[in-house]
């Protein structure tokens, strides 16, 4: 069977304290052409999955710094190798924090400007639709997805930020309902309303909002998050087609 005809397999990494791992697993299960499996943090290989999800939650209780202890898990070496080979890795919320702690994405995530955990609907403006994570969107599209975090205030030095902007690595920004990048629309004080970024090879992506809680229209989270996962599925299938 050619790779393009089997379901796209997502690996969801489970750290102690992950709590959106089952939600990510469930979300992938709502896509007919995809399936998910859990990867234990003490494992040392990725069991041949096509894409990796570092889920939300509080790995190691978020103690010391969010993601600071999780980055040393045995599985993370395999994730680094996978990413170096061009594999698709998405880090959501705590997963994003782990990716920046690991150095797989630039910058850092500071405590929210309001100093409180915030769980709220936000509008995400798609800044770059030409990535494996946003290919089903158009530039300027608004995705309505929930954020829920204590440390989502993205910060990065000016030089790196300028480079990221120039490269198109800023993928999602917080916007108001009309698409304007206002302070009110920014739930955590992130620099330039940044909600999601890619690495410079566009195969590692981190975002604070939770697309896995936004895959079913009947649910409170809506379904706009589907476009993120659908983009990843399309990318994997395209790559498989090219390869075969």
């Amino acid at each position: 069977m050619s790779p393009a005809h089997r379901p796209v397999r997502f690996g969801v990494v489970v750290f102690p304290g992950s709590n959106c791992d089952t939600d990510a697993h469930h979300a992938i299960g709502t896509f007919p052409g995809a399936g998910a499996q859990f990867l234990w943090h003490k494992d040392t290989d990725l069991a041949g999955v096509d894409a990796v999800i570092l889920p939300g939650g509080f790995s190691y209780g978020d103690y010391l710094r969010c993601g600071a202890i999780a980055r040393f898990s045995p599985i993370m070496q395999a994730v680094r190798d996978f990413a170096a080979d061009g594999g698709l890795v998405i880090g959501i919320c705590n997963g994003f924090q782990t990716l920046v702690e690991s150095g797989l994405l630039p910058g850092g995530l500071l405590r929210n400007m309001g100093l409180k955990f915030v769980c709220r609907y936000v509008n995400l403006r798609v800044e770059n639709a030409d990535t494996p994570f946003t290919s089903t969107c158009d530039e300027g599209d608004l995705l309505r997805i929930i954020v829920k975090h204590n440390e989502g205030n993205y910060a990065v030095d000016a030089e790196t930020l300028a480079r990221m902007n120039a490269n198109g690595q800023i993928v999602l920004r917080y916007a108001d309902a009309s698409g304007a990048l206002t302070d009110e629309a920014n739930p955590n004080g992130a620099v330039e309303n940044i909600a999601g970024i890619c690495n410079d090879t566009f195969n590692v992506f981190g975002m604070m909002p939770h697309p896995e809680n936004s895959v079913e229209a009947a649910m409170a989270g809506g379904a706009d998050g589907r476009r993120i996962f659908q983009s990843m599925i399309d990318t994997v299938l395209q790559r498989a087609e090219v390869a075969s």
Binding site: T22, D23, F117, C119, K148, N213, E216, M219, G221
Partner: peptide, 16 residues
């Protein structure tokens, strides 16, 4: 108060 609570995790919430 309730925006400080995660009310959506576990993907079962239909009314917030």
């Amino acid at each position: 108060a309730w925006e400080q609570y995660d009310y959506i995790v576990q993907a079962n919430t239909m009314q917030i």
